Amino acid sequence: MNSLILKQLIWDEVGEDPFEREKVLLDLEQECLEVYRRKVDSANISRARLHQELADSEAEFTHLLLSLGERSLPGRPEKMAGTLKEQLDSITPALREMQLRKEERVKQFQAVQGQIQKISAEITGQTEYNGSSSHVTVNENDLSLKKLEEYQTELQRLHNEKSDRLQRVERYISRVQNLSATLGMDSSMIITKVHPSLNELSGLSKNISDSILSKLHSTVESLEEEKKMRLEKLHHLGKALTNLWDLMDTPYEDRQMFSHVTSLLSVSSAEISTPGSLTSDIIQQADAEVKRLDQLKASKMKE
């Protein structure tokens, strides 16, 4: 206002035309209106921005509550009052706490789901599985404790299944080792042939897939069949030896050399577990002895 009075005095002294004065005053008024309008527009924009920030914060807070399966956050007022800035300041700490809760819950889901994927891969024999948690996809729309418990239950079920499969694998391996020892075979080679990871020296996690369990089962059956066949051969050879000994009145001392063969005559396959009792060498030696005695018998009959 002081500037306007000063301007009037100057105009009076100069003798400025009234119309020119009016024009200047109108221009000044217009400039003032423009400045005022800009200030109002800026205030409106600021208010709209605060409204949007508040709405976004409330929407995110509500979404976090729903996704985490929580009804409310202790300490946050149900109804907010005050200016927009005060309301925004009121919800910001609560929102940050919910964001931190979400981050922690996501980590829990990643850990559990990662273990589920890892054990599932082990059960299916996927040796190329990448166990990085970064490959785990978490449904962030449902991070409730109920959902987490469902995953934990599934993880426990898989742990139990893995443990059961490992026990079955160990039982098969033990059976292969026992049968191999009885038959005089290299159990390590047989087991490695089924899968390299089954060999303790490999340093690999044992493959516990259905296909490996099936191969182990077939291997045990094959060794059992080989055991029966060898025992049948030794039964046949043992009877032949006994008949030839009796026929030729073989001394007791000579018979003792093959007592380990004749002692099996009344033994079933299931009863034999002594290491080295059914080796191929024993069968070959017994077979050679039967042939030798047959030749000896034939030569005596010619005399």
Rank of each mutant, 00 (worst) to 15 (best):
F61P: 04
L9H: 07
H260S: 12
S187L: 05
D41H: 10
S269C: 13
D246S: 07
A94H: 11
I119N: 00
H135W: 04
R105H: 02
S299M: 13
L9N: 04
V169C: 14
V194Q: 01
S269I: 00
T137V: 12
S209W: 04
R47M: 08
I283Y: 00
G15L: 03
M1H: 12
I5S: 10
L293A: 03
E13A: 07
N199M: 04
E97L: 13
L223F: 02
L68F: 06
F19N: 06
L234S: 01
G82A: 10
G131K: 13
E58T: 11
K193R: 14
Q99K: 15
V194D: 02
L158I: 11
L88H: 09
F109K: 05
V136P: 03
Q152H: 05
R105F: 01
S42Y: 10
L278Y: 01
S132H: 09
E232C: 02
H51C: 08
R76I: 03
V106G: 02
L26F: 03
H51K: 12
K291H: 10
T92C: 05
W245V: 00
Q110N: 13
E58H: 05
S197W: 03
T137M: 03
L26Q: 12
I272Q: 06
E22D: 09
V106Y: 01
E104H: 11
D254Q: 13
M229A: 12
L95T: 06
Q285D: 11
D254Y: 07
S214G: 07
